[in-house]
Write a protein that binds this DNA or RNA. Structure first.
Length: 893
DNA sequence: TGTTGTACGTA
DNA sequence: CGTACGTACAACAA
């Protein structure tokens, strides 16, 4: 809230806790992953600068200083060995950013202070005390709650809350209201509560609630200590037990007001800052646009070279105005933003904003005249009117549900960002805008926003959506430029973007489910679970929760005294492998019963989950996520249809519940056989491996025959199994240790086996080694279509992280190329069946599931075989096997 | 109520 | 001490 400008300005000193704010900024912006093109992270600098600019603008202080901690130990460390002893190490990405902040403050001529042996807090306390004695108002900005003890009539604390713009203003009244304490009581309270971040121990059973109660009841810690005997109950005992500790804590929670700061408050003015230097620094940090302008504006100068402001004209279109507005719309690419909800293959749209160079408009698609509706329909469906949308699949489903279509999508900013940063798990628009446009996308109408420019809530929402549309438009350009610069344009425009439509179609179609069958199955699995529970209770002789790993451990290793299994964080594992091992080790039937219970509960909950997801149309509509998997795979959720059981007979029964829908003839599944191994053969160019694929024999058998120098017929099941584990393991970065565990053989033997394998397939070893070396050099791996995966950990000092990254580097090009290929296949199949009634329903990484319209089986089979087979030209054939049946199980192989 | 750890299904 | 996911549940913290 700006100070009222009418009052004659009384001197006001602004004191900031530099480290605290920089840390806060860093964590608030961590997900945005801000960095310069040469890899210097800038989250902390950016966020700190943004906070500083806002506070200077809003508070208009006459004096200012930023206080910093020093690396030297403080008097608190001397008083207490353990002080801050459990502080986590400074994150790698944060390092170096403090120095940048120092440089920026120096360029801005804002005083920064630090004193050896004292924390920033103590400097702040000292200066606040002196300044208020001189009649100045003081405003403290920090994230450290210890500062609350400084609050009085003259001293106010702004405490960071969440993010970088959300702060709470603590006056004496506000402290009272929030904590039920006076500022002076705060250090007493803090000592009593303890503080994990400073490593001040707390009293067991005493949290904030009890601490507050005691301090307000007794008035002060002194008084509480004096009358500690009066405190009743268990907590009273605990208090008396820990009294010494609390008193010790108290010495540390008091801020020093006598730190040797040589600056006088009145001298802490903002100097004439060096504009050139600031510009240079901001250039180096690649901070442009809105923040730079805000900073300059606040400091009283507008920089002519700063990025243009971010103001747009927003028109809220009323019924009858839409057609006209669209007619006048320039032909440049428009940014679109939708307000709506999506899921289960459908959606609804409540608002739409369109941003173009001429301005932006908001409209409610449910309130349109017929003419508007027609114009909007035509414009949205016009292939020749280019559009950019953020995460278009949901809106597309929504539009379809309203009878519209969306064509001419030339950029999906979420997809583009995914290809630019495949390791990120989500891509919120505001983060991307911050990262690529250096602009804040703040919802102005949101509650708690600093300004409420709009009295009308609807108009505010309209403006927010329009701002998003505009941001999408700008972001699309920025991301396209970024991707084209590094050769990622084709992957996004020719594969990922057109795939959006295919996935939407699959989600909308869903797959038919046999509800009665699932219900019966659930009952059956449920009965088996019940039986297992009873049997287990019987064996053990007491009731317990078989689903609780903790209770299970107590029973198995405590009560029954069975041999210990592998250690995990919470004790000893009770996973399926361990239970199977236990079953072998003892005569006790319990492990077998538990295994059965695990099995059956898993199956039961799977079926239950599926039943819950059956829509009114009798079908299950999953959602395919195109932007989560770091390797480029799709994922499936709500429900996940990519992990329906198949390995066991019992599990496969669930697949019988997925059936052909009414009006269709049958289901068809088509999958790639051993696609990842074929890709490994292709990428490595290993002649022997390629020949093994072309030999016509079973692949694992063929490779085993080569490794062991036997005719294929003489490869027994054991040898084949070993080589199969090798074949697959290699693509995952399997270690000797892992292979030995997998095959139950000594590590030395596993190593020897690997040697033997590489004697025959040396090209594979060379390839695997080269891929890691290349990734370490470039910082990323690449698939056959140029999809990248960045692996900064390849150069980590931490062995575990580095080796993890190495395995990812081995796997990413293989798994990712397989994802590329099936995506291309999906596009080509979809194009080829456009005129048919049959449709694609599911993708399960190397398998596609179709619903076949009457009379189309032969044609579809042919199309699918051909298109999948020729999706990409590898140096080995892409083999496709097809199955047909009225349930997913029957259509399987 | 939200987060963490364990377990387990698929490719 | 092979990769990539999503979901369910219990336990814990608050």
């Amino acid at each position: 809230m700006p100070k009222s400008e009418a009052t004659p300005t009384r001197p006001c000193l602004l004191l900031l806790d530099g480290h605290s704010l920089a840390y806060r900024a860093f964590y608030a912006l961590k997900d945005a992953n801000l960095m310069t093109t040469d890899g210097q992270h800038t989250e902390a600098v950016y966020g700190f600068t943004s906070m500083l600019a806002n506070i200077l603008r809003d508070e208009q202080p006459s004096h200012v200083a930023v206080c910093f901690d020093r690396s030297e130990p403080t008097f608190r460390h001397e008083a207490y060995d353990g002080y801050k002893a459990n502080r986590a190490e400074t994150p790698e990405d944060f390092r170096g950013q403090m120095q940048l902040i120092f440089e920026l403050l120096d360029a801005l001529r804002i005083p920064r202070l630090s004193v050896a042996g004292f924390e920033a807090d103590d400097l702040i306390a000292t200066l606040a005390t002196r300044a208020s004695a001189e009649g100045m108002d003081v405003l403290i900005v920090t994230g450290d709650r210890d500062a609350l003890q400084l609050v009085n009539d003259k001293v106010t604390v702004l405490m960071t809350r969440r993010g970088i713009s959300d702060m709470t203003r603590f006056t004496p009244e506000a402290v009272k209201e929030k904590y039920g304490l006076t500022p002076a009581q705060y250090p007493d309270f803090a000592a009593l509560r303890g503080d994990p971040s400073d490593n001040l121990p707390s009293i067991p059973g005493v949290g904030e609630k009890t601490a507050t109660k005691w301090i307000s009841e007794y008035g002060s810690l002194d008084e509480l200590v004096r009358r500690a005997d009066e405190v009743k109950g268990k907590v009273g005992e605990k208090l008396r037990e820990h009294l010494g500790q609390v008193i010790h804590n108290r010495m540390l929670t008091e801020l020093r007001r006598d730190a040797p700061v040589d600056a006088e408050p009145s001298a802490l003015t903002i100097g004439p800052w060096d504009r050139e230097e600031v510009n240079k620094l901001l250039d180096a940090l690649q901070i442009r646009g809105e923040l730079r302008e805000r900073l300059f504006k606040t400091l009283g100068t507008t920089d002519p070279e700063a990025g243009e402001g971010f103001e747009i004209e927003v028109t809220v279109l009323e019924p009858g105005q839409v057609a006209g507005w669209l007619a006048a719309l320039p032909e440049d690419r428009a940014g679109l933003a939708f307000q709506g909800t999506y899921g289960s293959g459908t959606g609804r749209i409540d608002g739409l904003a369109i941003a173009s160079p001429g301005g932006a408009a908001y409209l409610d698609p449910t309130r349109l005249t017929e003419e508007d509706e027609a114009a909007l329909r035509a414009w949205l469906a016009d292939e020749n009117r280019p559009k950019a949308v953020h995460d278009a699949k949901g809106p597309l489903l929504g539009l379809w549900a309203h009878g519209h279509d969306l064509r001419g999508l030339t950029c999906d900013t979420a997809l583009a960002a995914y290809l630019a940063m495949p390791g990120q798990r989500s891509f919120p628009l505001d983060d991307l805008v911050l990262r690529y446009l250096h602009r804040e996308l703040r919802a102005e109408s949101a509650p708690g926003g600093q300004t409420s420019l709009f009295d009308d809530a609807d108009e505010g929402a309209a403006r927010d959506l329009a701002l998003r549309a505009q941001a999408v438009r700008d972001l699309a350009d920025a991301l396209e430029a970024h991707l084209s610069q590094r050769g990622g344009t084709r992957l996004v425009t020719e594969v990922e973007l057109p795939l959006v439509r295919v996935l939407a179609q699959m989600e909308r179609a869903g797959i038919a489910a046999d509800r009665q069958y699932f219900a019966a199955l659930e009952a059956e699995f449920g009965a088996a679970v019940k039986q297992a529970v009873e049997a287990a209770h019987q064996v053990v002789g007491e009731q317990f929760n078989l689903g609780s790993p903790k209770q299970l451990q107590e029973i198995l290793f405590g009560k029954l005294g069975l041999p210990k299994t592998k250690k995990i964080k919470t004790g000893y594992t009770t996973d399926a492998d361990a239970l199977a091992w236990l079953a072998q080790q003892t005569d006790n039937e319990l492990p077998v019963i538990l295994l059965r219970h695990r099995d059956q509960t898993k199956l039961r909950t799977t079926v239950e989950g599926l039943i819950k997801e059956i829509s009114d149309d009798g079908r299950i509509h999953t959602t395919f996520n195109q932007i989560v998997a770091a390797t480029g795979r799709l994922s499936s959720e709500k429900p996940n249809l990519q992990n329906i059981p198949i390995r066991t007979v019992e599990g496969r029964r669930i697949r019988k519940g997925f059936v052909v829908g009414e009006g269709y003839e049958t289901l068809l599944t088509a999958d790639y056989s051993q696609i990842e191994l074929r890709i490994m053969a292709h990428l490595s160019g290993d002649e022997s491996l390629i020949e093994a694929f072309e030999s016509g024999h079973d692949f694992h058998q063929a490779t085993a025959s080569r490794v062991f120098d036997l005719p294929p017929e003489q490869v027994d099941a054991e040898l084949r199994a070993r080589i199969k584990a090798m074949n697959y393991g290699l693509a995952y970065g399997l270690s000797d240790f892992g292979l030995s565990g997998q095959l139950n053989i000594p590590v030395a033997e596993a190593r020897a086996l690997k040697e033997e394998y590489f004697e025959e397939f040396g090209g594979v070893r060379d390839y695997l080694e080269s891929i890691v070396a290349q990734a370490r050099r470039d910082g990323y791996t690449e698939t056959i279509l140029g999809r990248r995966r960045y692996l900064p950990d390849l150069t980590s000092d931490n062995r575990q992280r580095r080796e993890m990254a190495e395995r990812m580097a081995l796997n990413a090009p293989i798994q990712g190329s397989a994802a590329d290929i099936i995506k291309v296949a999906m596009l080509n199949v979809q194009k080829a069946i456009e005129g048919m009634r049959s449709r694609m329903l599911l993708q399960v990484h190397d398998e596609l599931v179709f619903e076949v319209a009457p009379g189309e089986l032969d044609e579809l089979t042919e199309v699918v075989r051909t298109q999948m087979g020729r999706a990409y030209d590898l140096s080995v054939p892409l083999e496709v096997s097809v199955g047909v049946g009225t349930t997913w199980e029957d259509a399987g192989h």
